[in-house]
Simulated assay, not measured.
Amino acid sequence: MFRGLYTATSGMMANNRNQQILTNNLSNANTPGFKQDQTVLRSFPAQLIKAMGTGNNSATQNRIGTLNTGVYAQEAIPSFIQGALKDTGNRTDISILEDSLPINPVTQQKGTIVFAVQIDNNEVRYTRNGQFTVNQDGFLTTSEGYNVLNQNLQPIQVNSSEFTVEDNGRVILNDGSNTNRLWLGYTEEPAQLIKEGHGLMRWGGNPAETPQFIDEVGLLNNTGSFVKQGFIEQSNVDLTQTMTQMMNTFRAFESNQKVIQAYDQSMEKAVNEIGRIY
């Protein structure tokens, strides 16, 4: 009798987690470069059900089938579909373009490209938010003050906002010098990038398979552009779809709640009536 109670409870917990993820997506709908998370729901391991009273010999027992006793929210996986580009006219705004990326013949999916930045402990993190600025020392930084890195994973000094970024990420300063290129890293497994907040991501997969500079994976043989100056990539959150998913999740939560209420009423009746001694 209590098996259904546990199943409905797990459904409430899974829907609650899904609602939290959808709410976070909605709150970041205007965050440049934000990638919406998608909830992965999985069922608990199936249990084999057998008929009672058929003996202890497993060969003679009548197997009824399998039963799943609930679901759980395993993880949130970012969707790296490119967001729409917004023309800002700001020379420090740089967006990543993925139209020319190859499709993996095995997975039939594109990889993704990311910028590299340096956080406070000098570790490297990745981001899709190209809403950059120039700090007081003339270095190109994120809006949180993290240094944007070049092809050698070193900070890029541009001195002023009067610089040009070519399609392949080459940075040309106001005096015509071009010793730096934006570090543009490519990976075929973007799901291994783990969000850390402030638009930053760290690599959570095999350390030997971290995103590689586009030159090292031969992407420069493509004729397409990889970056576009004066534009920012907007969030890829679909507001209408997200609101619809939140309503459906709320209804599913309510449905599981009503199942629990029904079980509660059944148990109350069992205690007060069936167990009564005449």
Score class of each variant (00 low, 15 high):
residue 164 T to L: 10
residue 6 Y to S: 12
residue 270 A to P: 07
residue 189 E to Q: 13
residue 174 N to L: 06
residue 85 L to V: 12
residue 25 N to M: 12
residue 175 D to H: 05
residue 86 K to A: 10
residue 32 P to Q: 07
residue 25 N to R: 06
residue 22 L to E: 04
residue 241 Q to V: 02
residue 22 L to M: 09
residue 210 T to P: 03
residue 11 G to L: 12
residue 221 N to Y: 06
residue 173 L to N: 10
residue 21 I to L: 12
residue 262 A to L: 14
residue 55 G to T: 13
residue 148 V to E: 03
residue 213 F to P: 05
residue 137 D to V: 03
residue 212 Q to E: 14
residue 211 P to F: 08
residue 174 N to W: 04
residue 189 E to G: 10
residue 208 A to W: 00
residue 202 R to L: 07
residue 219 L to G: 06
residue 169 G to K: 12
residue 103 I to N: 11
residue 60 T to D: 11
residue 28 N to W: 06
residue 278 Y to R: 15
residue 84 A to T: 10
residue 253 F to N: 01
residue 121 N to Y: 04
residue 27 S to H: 08
residue 183 W to T: 00
residue 142 T to W: 01
residue 245 Q to R: 14
residue 49 I to G: 12
residue 14 A to R: 08
residue 265 Q to G: 06
residue 196 E to L: 04
residue 146 Y to W: 03
residue 212 Q to K: 15
residue 90 N to M: 14
residue 244 T to Q: 08
residue 45 P to Q: 00
residue 148 V to L: 08
residue 264 D to L: 06
residue 218 G to A: 10
residue 126 Y to I: 05
residue 158 V to G: 01
residue 166 E to R: 14
residue 30 N to G: 01
residue 233 E to V: 07
residue 110 K to T: 08
residue 196 E to M: 06
residue 107 T to S: 15
residue 7 T to C: 14
residue 204 G to L: 05
residue 84 A to K: 07
residue 10 S to L: 11
residue 194 I to D: 00
residue 105 P to E: 09
residue 99 D to G: 02
residue 2 F to V: 03
residue 212 Q to C: 06
residue 231 F to I: 02
residue 129 N to A: 14
residue 197 G to C: 04
residue 274 I to T: 06
residue 120 D to L: 07
residue 24 N to F: 07
residue 33 G to N: 01
residue 199 G to P: 02
residue 106 V to T: 13
residue 245 Q to I: 05
residue 127 T to E: 04
residue 167 D to I: 09
residue 5 L to F: 15
residue 115 F to E: 02
residue 245 Q to P: 00
residue 238 D to W: 01
residue 101 L to C: 09
residue 194 I to S: 00
residue 191 A to V: 01
residue 102 P to S: 13
residue 220 L to M: 11
residue 224 G to L: 11
residue 145 G to K: 03
residue 55 G to P: 10
residue 129 N to R: 13
residue 235 S to K: 01
residue 83 G to F: 08
residue 58 S to G: 12
residue 30 N to K: 08
residue 2 F to I: 06
residue 43 S to C: 11
residue 126 Y to D: 03
residue 98 E to F: 05
residue 75 E to M: 14
residue 131 Q to Y: 07
residue 276 R to L: 08
residue 246 M to P: 04
residue 28 N to D: 00
residue 127 T to G: 05
residue 41 L to G: 11
residue 153 L to V: 02
residue 165 V to T: 02
residue 154 Q to L: 13
residue 82 Q to I: 10
residue 4 G to S: 14
